[in-house]
Amino acid sequence: MTKNVFSRVDLSSFVTGSTEHTWQPTMSAETNIPSYWLNWRFFLCAIFVLTSLFLSSFLIWKYEGPGKRRKRGGGHDHDQREGTGVVYDDETWNTCVRRIHPNWLLGFRVFGFVTLLGLISGNAIADGAGIFIFYTQWTFTLVTIYFGVAALVSINKFRSGDNCHNGVSSRVDEEQGSYRPPIHNENSNVFKASNGHERHNRSTRQVASTLGYIHQILFQTCAGAVLLTDGVFWFIIYPFLTSKDFNLDFFIVIMHSVNAVFLLGETFLNSLRFPLFRISYFVVWTGVFVIFQWIVHACVSFWWPYPFLDLSSSYAPLWYATQTHRPYAAVGLMHVPCFGVFALIVKLKYMWLSKCFSEEP
Rank of each mutant, 00 (worst) to 15 (best):
K3D: 11
R159H: 01
I60K: 04
F262A: 03
F43S: 12
F134Y: 15
G287S: 09
Q323W: 10
H297D: 03
Y213K: 06
K192S: 13
I214V: 15
P182T: 02
T31I: 10
F147Y: 12
V97S: 07
A260R: 07
R72P: 00
L348P: 01
H78E: 14
A193F: 01
L248S: 06
G148I: 08
C299I: 14
V15D: 13
F219D: 04
C45N: 09
C356L: 10
V283Y: 04
E20W: 07
Q137H: 15
S313K: 07
N270G: 02
D249S: 05
D249C: 03
V87D: 02
K192N: 10
C356P: 00
R199Q: 13
F14Q: 11
K68D: 05
N259D: 14
V149D: 04
I214E: 02
L55C: 06
L218F: 11
H76W: 05
G332S: 13
S280P: 03
I131H: 06
A298V: 04
D245Q: 15
T322R: 05
P327A: 14
A46S: 14
F240G: 01
F158A: 13
L241P: 00
T136M: 09
G332F: 14
C299D: 01
I120A: 00
G287D: 06
Q24P: 00
C356N: 10
L333R: 00
D249K: 11
N39Y: 08
L44T: 15
S178N: 09
Q24A: 11
L105M: 10
S52K: 01
V153E: 09
F219Y: 15
N259S: 14
A29W: 12
T92A: 12
S52T: 07
G177V: 06
